[in-house]
């Protein structure tokens, strides 16, 4: 068996040219539209799950907490702050990525989706944000994507939620002197400018203080199960959330 023959080298370069052409034209979207119906039917099969009730409860608790905070703030400032206008685009999950924490949804630039828009389920449970946009489809990076960083806030103390891959998220950079309890709800913070504040990331699970570390760490119990949802909402945000 010869390793390099003229024919093999020719096939290799031919493949390179074909792939280059396929990348220039929008071939991916053609495949997505071909398989959309089959994939939506396959995704529906497993869409009932026990976690849905839990999701609603967490969502309501977070909403309550955010409303209390908003109420206090408005009382204090008598309406001096303008909240960013947010409208919602709905979409359906078509598929997950093969190995990485991404999903494909059937709303795209024609529906007004842009890169960076937050994607939620229910009212306010954050699952990720849009990373790629096609005409009719978008790809969403989940919070659990490896090294994906999200600014988090627990009882008004800021930390960092880091994706670990394989649907695992961890809380990092949480000050050691602040209290961190099992079951505390983790919300987004508008500090990083990526997400509006008050979206649910998850709950604190197994908080740890390591002796020579200046920060506390913990696991995050996600408020969603990817296999229990089939519809998502994309928040069409109109301004950056640094405030």
């Amino acid at each position: 068996m010869k390793i390099f023959t003229k024919r093999k080298i020719l096939v290799f370069f031919l493949l390179l040219v074909v792939f280059f052409i396929l990348n220039i034209f929008n071939t991916k979207e053609l495949f997505y539209s071909l398989s959309e119906n089959i994939q939506i039917n396959l995704w529906k099969v497993n869409s009932n799950c026990d976690l849905v009730e839990d999701q609603e409860l967490i969502s309501l608790m977070a909403e309550n907490e955010e409303l209390q905070r908003e109420n206090k703030f408005l009382k204090d400032s008598l309406g001096l702050k303008d909240y960013p206008e947010v409208s919602v685009i709905s979409g359906r999950i078509i598929s997950k990525d093969y190995l990485f924490d991404n999903i494909l949804i059937n709303s795209g630039s024609k529906d007004g989706v842009k890169i960076g828009f937050p994607v939620v389920i229910g009212n306010n449970i954050l699952i990720g944000r849009v990373s790629e946009v096609y005409n009719n489809y978008s790809r969403v990076e989940l919070l659990s994507l490896k090294d994906n960083l999200t600014d988090a806030s627990i009882n008004r103390v800021v930390g960092l939620a880091r994706g670990k891959g394989s649907e695992v998220i961890a809380l990092e950079m949480f000050p050691r002197d602040k209290e961190l309890k099992e079951g505390d709800i983790i919300l987004t913070s508008s500090l990083g400018g990526n997400y509006p504040s008050g979206l649910v990331i998850g709950k604190v699970k197994n908080p740890k203080k390591i002796d020579n570390e200046p920060f506390q760490i913990s696991e995050i119990e996600k408020a969603y199960n990817l296999f229990s949802i089939d519809r998502v909402s994309i928040l069409k945000v109109t301004q950056i959330f640094n405030d």
Binding site: L15, F19, K28, S95, Y98, N102, E132
Partner: peptide, 15 residues
């Protein structure tokens, strides 16, 4: 198929 249904460039995982 892996390239098409992920965020990779087409041809990366294929090759």
């Amino acid at each position: 198929f892996w390239d098409i249904y992920s965020s990779n460039y087409i041809g990366l995982m294929t090759l």
